[in-house]
Amino acid sequence: MELSKKLREAYKACAHQVPGNGPRNIGVLKQAFAEIDAGLESDTYGKGPVIEDFENKMAGVLGKEKAVFFPSGTMAQQIAMRIWCDELSLHKVAYHPLCHLEIHEEDGLKKLHRIESVLLADKNRLITLADVQELGSDVACLLLELPQREIGGELPEFDELVAISDYCREEGIKLHMDGARLFEVLPYYQKTAAEVCQLFDSVYISLYKGVGGIAGAILAGSEPFAKEAFIWKRRHGGDLISLYPYILSADYSFEKRRDRFPAYLNGARELAAMYNGCHGVRTRPLVPVSNMFHVHFPLPKEKIEPVFLAVVEETGVGLTAVVYAVDEESSYFEISIGDNYGTIPKEKLQQAFSLLDEKMEVTLR
């Protein structure tokens, strides 16, 4: 059997999976629906109490006038860019070279909306105020991702965000937040979601990442922005006849986890310290600023996969299901801390990391 597949299957079958909130199976939906009145009416094409009440609730959490539920973040963010470009009659936006719109959406922004992208900063670092100032006012919108996932979940300091926000408003540039992991960064900033979102003209949040719902997203902003977003969602076919399974699971999961994000950050920092204590292993960031980080190795994935396969087979602790190649000489994987981490006995973690350290020391020789 292929080594990568063996690692995935061993991880799936192990007793203790370190990252995540648990299995994504039908049981998640059954839990969300367990206490729902069976007579509750579903939403219909984006209307009805089920969807409208949830949208209003999330608008309040984010400190925005209105919010619109979307089946996907990809749809929501492309639409946000289109709204701002149309408003300013300027079909050009700026974002990080490793932005989701640039590398994961098959050029959807360009092909569907004819919007040109300007890539800011080197791909290995965060966008800074200096980068934004070099733009002038030649773009309709600047998109900032909090945290910047593809470089390990790094995050600008809050003062830097304030400075970028002030500059964009002075220059008439709309500022949009890719807040797929917004709730995960709030413990680091020591701010509420509304306090962070007030710096932005529009905000997207994911409802299935740290929140742990089945799928879905929220796009929030002013009343006029939300009205346009609703129309564009209809144009994109995003108004399914009913979206209530996603909405009810998102609401259930949000209430279940909204107070757990500080614990997730503490868990990520504890786990990163254990990784950094092993031979040849380094995390990015060295000290996590959210519940996610990357784990890097100075060896190709073909030499790292057997190490993690041995750890899971010998200890029952699954540290990762997959290892990615950076190049022919290095590799990495991403980890996000959720509910699972707090359920693993500390002695089992210590056993797993002791074995990881031993295996890495031997592998590096």
Results as ranks from 00 to 15, higher is better:
M292K: 10
I51V: 14
I231P: 01
A32C: 10
G27L: 12
L248G: 02
S206I: 09
R257M: 10
W232G: 00
G237I: 03
A180E: 09
S137L: 09
L146E: 06
G48M: 01
D259T: 13
V287D: 08
G216H: 02
L3Q: 07
V287W: 07
F333M: 05
G342Q: 13
V28P: 02
T74P: 01
A67W: 05
Q350R: 15
H96N: 06
I304F: 06
A180C: 15
A59H: 00
I164G: 00
G63M: 05
E228L: 13
I173D: 01
S249D: 08
N291K: 12
L119G: 06
R114E: 13
P262F: 05
K6A: 15
G22I: 11
R235H: 08
D166H: 14
W84P: 00
F69N: 00
A263S: 12
Q190T: 11
E102V: 15
K174G: 13
A194D: 09
G152E: 03
P23F: 07
A229L: 03
E145D: 14
A34G: 10
M81S: 07
R125M: 06
D339V: 13
A250S: 12
V311P: 00
L112A: 11
A352Y: 02
I79D: 02
N56A: 14
A80Q: 08
Y252K: 07
A325T: 06
V68P: 03
A310T: 12
P262I: 03
S222R: 05
I36Q: 10
L286S: 15
